[in-house]
Structures are given as structure tokens and as C-alpha cells.
Simulated scan of single mutants.
Amino acid sequence: MDRITITAKGISVSVDLAVGHLADLVVEAGGRGLRPLHRAPWLDEPPGDLPQGLPEGVARLSGDFLCAPFSASDVEAAPLHGWPANSPWDVVESAAVADGWRAVFRLRRKVMGAAVEKTLRLRHGHPFLYQEHAFVGGSGAISVAHHPMTVMREGGRLSFSPKRLAATPEISLEPDPKRGRFALAYPARSADLAAFPTAGGGTTDLRDYAMEPSREDFVTLVEADHAGPGWTAVARRAERDLVLVLKNPAELPVTMLWTSNGGRDYAPWNGRHRGVLGIEDGRTAIGHAASLDDNWLKREGVATAFALAPDGRVAFRHVIGALPQADGPPPASVAMLPDRLRLETPDGAVREVPFDGTFLRIGKA
């Protein structure tokens, strides 16, 4: 069994057990099925057509997955984004509960000596997937990130919880013009998301996902100090919906945006991986060794790894959902109430939807 699907009223999620990716998420709303998550185009092609040596996590790229570590596994040998994104998971438990469904998965491999568990919760009538990852035991420290990807046929508009700053790394994802291209300046930083430096010397609005130019870009947003959840909202134009991703900033203090819009010309990307946005909430720098060493985020007072202990348990939570939205901007504010999520648009219109306001444990690290 390579795939399992769990369901509650109005929502279902499928897991690719070969790599632990969330292969599909479907929210039934407004008479249609909203699919907020992306799957790579090469998943529908014969596996033999893929380049040799491609990490399993890229070969089966879909939805969302746990990165542990995020990016380079240069402390403990593993593929890009670590074994949780590239190797099999077992089903420990999957059963209906009073208010929905609960499933628990365990990674067959260990990470830094720790057992890794994934718990998924669906609640009847909630348009959200609630997930928790836990490291049980182990030693040293591990950087982590979620890797949800959405996709847009005609672009969209983004909004965020308050951010302190945005910054690009020293080198772009595709510095060789023979292999790809980028649009942002590297390195660069700005406290204004609406005016981030570009490679051409101007500025761009990070809140706007435009389908031109073709590019591959990566930028890290650092959460500001505030009392609410960390969140990203994406109003997808052609899809006529609103994708929501939420976190506890004390657990996952950065949000890394990966824009993959036809900016890679080599296989399996081949310029066709378009309109994709990775919303990568994490506790990490770029690479495991960099996360444990001195880095620019630590100098900003931002944690970049979780400490592990042989008798310890480290866990963090994350939420992904979707709502129908015919047109209009994403919310200007998002607030959690005990049993619902309250969204307010820039013009003051309010929308409330069912939500477990206790799940993210805001105020706890």
C-alpha cells in the first residue's frame, strides 16, 4: 500500500506512504472540491523517464511534507530535505473518532537517533487539515520545516501575519543562466514586503504572484512579535479560492517562500513547473549544518533548530485549509477564536469558519 486516504465530513487527505508527502487535500465547499495542494507534472509520467539519482522526494513531489533537516543534510547523511521527505512511513493508527478522523504515521528511519511521528486530524465540517510532527528521543539538534505547495494557473495575491523582515540568501537558486533564471536580488533584505529589491535594480511586491516573468526565487520572512498565529493566505484567481496556512510562530518562526514558475530548464522541471508557490514554515536556516552553526537568523534572535534528548519529545503543529472565494483580496487579518477562525478583508468585511482555536497552542514553544 503506497497511499492511504482519510476522510471526515467535507474534507479528505491522501498520504503517499513511500515518502510521507500529502499527495492530495480536498475540501468540499460551495458545491465543488477545492484542491489547495500542488503535485508535480512528472508524477503522471513513467518513472523511468526521470533523471537517474533524483531524490525520491523530488521524484514524488506533491502537496506537503516534513523537511528534517530543511535543505542540505550535511550533518547526518540523507537526501535533500532529509529522510522524512524521501523514505517510507508506516501507518500506526487510522480510525474514526467522535468528531472526525485521526491517523498516526511513523517514519521507518530515525533522524538524529529520534523516532519521527506524523499525526493527522480531520474534523467534521472543518475546511482544515490539522497536523503534528514529533521527534521522540534522539540527540543533538534538528532543523525542520513544512513544505506545502500550492499552484495557480493565473497567479494570485498573498497576505501574511505581521513580518519583521524579508531576506534572500547569498546566492540564488539558479545562478547559471544556462540552467534557469531568477527575479529577486541576492542577497537582499527589506522590512517592506511591498518593495523588495529585484535583480534588475528595482523593487517588487512579494504579496503579488505574477505569472511573468519565468523565475525560480526563494525568500525568508521572519515573523514579527505579535500575540496571534502565524499565517499565510493566498487568493488564487483562476481557482477562485483562498488557501490558508497557519502555524505557531514560537515553534516555527520563519516562513520561506519558494516561487517556482518555469525558472528551471533542466529535467525533470523543463520549464513546465509553473505557478507553484511553496509556503515553507520552519525553524531552520538553509541546511542542517548552517542551522546548528552561527547564522544570520540566530543573530536576529530567531531559533533555527530544535534540541533533541534521549528521553525527550519535541513536537510542532501546522494547519492547511481552503475556502471558496470568487474574487477579491486575501484577508488583512486572521484571528483565532475557540471554535472558529475570523478573517477580515481590507475593507472590513468579516468571515468566520469552523476552526479548532486551541490546536496551535499559541503562547507555547
Rank of each mutant, 00 (worst) to 15 (best):
G230M: 02
G230R: 05
V234Q: 02
R236A: 10
R237L: 02
R237M: 00
A238I: 00
A238Q: 11
E239V: 00
D241N: 12
L242Y: 06
L242K: 08
V245R: 09
N248C: 02
E251M: 10
L252E: 03
L252H: 05
P253N: 09
P253K: 04
T255E: 12
L257T: 05
W258G: 03
W258H: 05
S260A: 15
S260N: 14
S260I: 11
N261L: 01
A267F: 10
A267H: 06
P268D: 07
W269H: 13
W269T: 06
W269F: 14
H273M: 12
L277W: 09
L277A: 05
G278M: 03
I279S: 08
I279Q: 05
D281L: 02
T284D: 05
I286M: 13
G287T: 08
H288E: 15
H288K: 04
A289N: 11
A290Q: 14
L292F: 08
N295G: 04
W296L: 12
L297S: 07
K298A: 12
R299M: 04
R299T: 12
G301L: 04
G301Y: 13
V302H: 06
V302F: 04
A305F: 14
A305I: 10
A305P: 00
A307P: 07
A307H: 14
A307Y: 08
L308S: 11
V314C: 10
V314D: 09
V314E: 14
A315D: 09
A315H: 10
H318V: 06
H318W: 10
V319L: 03
G321C: 04
A322Q: 06
A322D: 11
Q325S: 06
D327F: 10
P331Q: 08
P331F: 07
P338Q: 07
D339M: 00
L343F: 01
T345Y: 10
T345W: 15
P346Y: 07
P346H: 09
D347V: 09
A349I: 09
V350W: 02
